[in-house]
């Protein structure tokens, strides 16, 4: 497939780097200020080096990518709330041209799911977004395979940063501020980890799951989620939990048409208490009971691999 990759951050760059391995060609690539277009495929190494050195991917205007020859638009620009721009307009333009879209960006399917589906219905193109929930973990594809109508609940840990902070607090008996600073030093938490620790990122993923489960009956956005973060937790609360064989994790629960995110008491070594930056999700479905998926969720290459898996599915 010929890919047009929007966003040259951790995810977009990794997609460009790994595309060839998966048998795809990147014909267009843009960041916020520049673009490079080549119908024969861009030189991934050279372009990524240029981005590193000069901060741009090429000399062309970002707009140029939409005139390029491509089959699938890969959207990896920043996730934004509300209107989900610029991601949403990128999706709109690709679908208007009857191209397929693969999202890493959560915004369009968390904040404007119905709009995206309506545009898709008018288009020859298809939208896939497996990478938006749990990065490399096959969470949405498992729901798709089981059948959304057969799934009664999805719950677990979907943010590696929050999970890292809570597992360190539990293991070391340290307070939140201390562990967060350490996580930032280690590069586990970003400079501004607000959305990770206040539950917003987890909630966006829960909302996407809720949208998939409702199969168009009800649209969910962040406003429909009940969200609480982990900023107020203290080391002594984790101690109290541990004395009882439990621990506290930032859990999203999607069930009965509701999305709730907040710190929850869970069994200390249970299915939804993964270690470090891992994610862990339980899917409850007819016939299969409780399905568990645990592993390394986010990260540039991890998320890029999920994007390329979606591209693969479009090719089939």
């Amino acid at each position: 497939m010929r890919l047009c990759v929007l966003g040259a951050g951790a995810v977009g760059s990794a997609v460009v780097e790994l595309a060839a391995e998966h048998g795809h060609v990147v014909t267009a690539f843009a960041d916020s200020e520049s673009a490079v277009v080549d119908a024969d495929g861009i030189d991934a190494d050279a372009v990524l080096a240029k981005k590193q050195e000069d901060g741009v991917v090429g000399e062309a205007d970002p707009e140029a990518v939409f005139d390029a020859d491509y089959d699938v638009l890969v959207e990896a620009t920043p996730t934004t709330l509300g209107d989900a721009e610029p991601g949403f307009s990128h999706v709109e333009r690709a679908l208007a041209d009857d191209r397929d879209v693969v999202l890493a960006n959560k915004g369009p399917v968390a904040e404007r799911y119905a709009d995206v589906r309506a545009l898709e219905a008018e288009s020859e193109g298809t939208v896939r977004f497996g990478a938006t929930v749990g990065g490399a973990l096959p969470i949405l594809s498992t729901i798709e395979d089981v059948g959304p109508s057969r799934v009664s609940a999805v719950y677990g840990v979907l943010n590696g940063t929050a999970n890292f902070v809570l597992s360190r607090m539990a293991a070391e008996g340290l307070d939140y501020e201390h562990v967060l600073a350490e996580a930032q030093d280690l590069g586990v938490a970003e400079a501004d980890p607000t959305f990770d620790v206040d539950g917003t990122d987890t909630a966006l993923k829960g909302v996407i799951v809720a949208n998939v489960l409702s199969e168009g009956e009800t649209e969910f956005t962040l406003d429909d989620a009940d969200v609480e973060g982990i900023q107020e937790l203290s080391g002594s609360m984790l101690d109290l939990a541990q004395e009882d064989g439990q621990t506290i994790r930032l859990i999203v629960e999607v069930a009965d048409g509701a999305v709730r995110v907040g710190p929850r008491l869970v069994p200390g070594h249970g299915a939804v208490a993964p270690s470090g930056t891992e994610n862990a999700v339980q899917i409850e479905a007819d016939y299969c009971g409780r399905l568990g998926i645990t592993g390394q969720g986010a990260g540039g290459p991890e998320t890029a691999s999920a994007v390329l898996t979606d591209v693969e599915r479009l090719a089939d």
Binding site: S152, E232, L233, M237, A255, P263, R264, L265, V266, R290
Partner: peptide, 10 residues
């Protein structure tokens, strides 16, 4: 007061 609930879903 801050309340930490148990996971009860499912």
């Amino acid at each position: 007061l801050q309340l930490v609930e148990p996971l009860t879903v499912g």
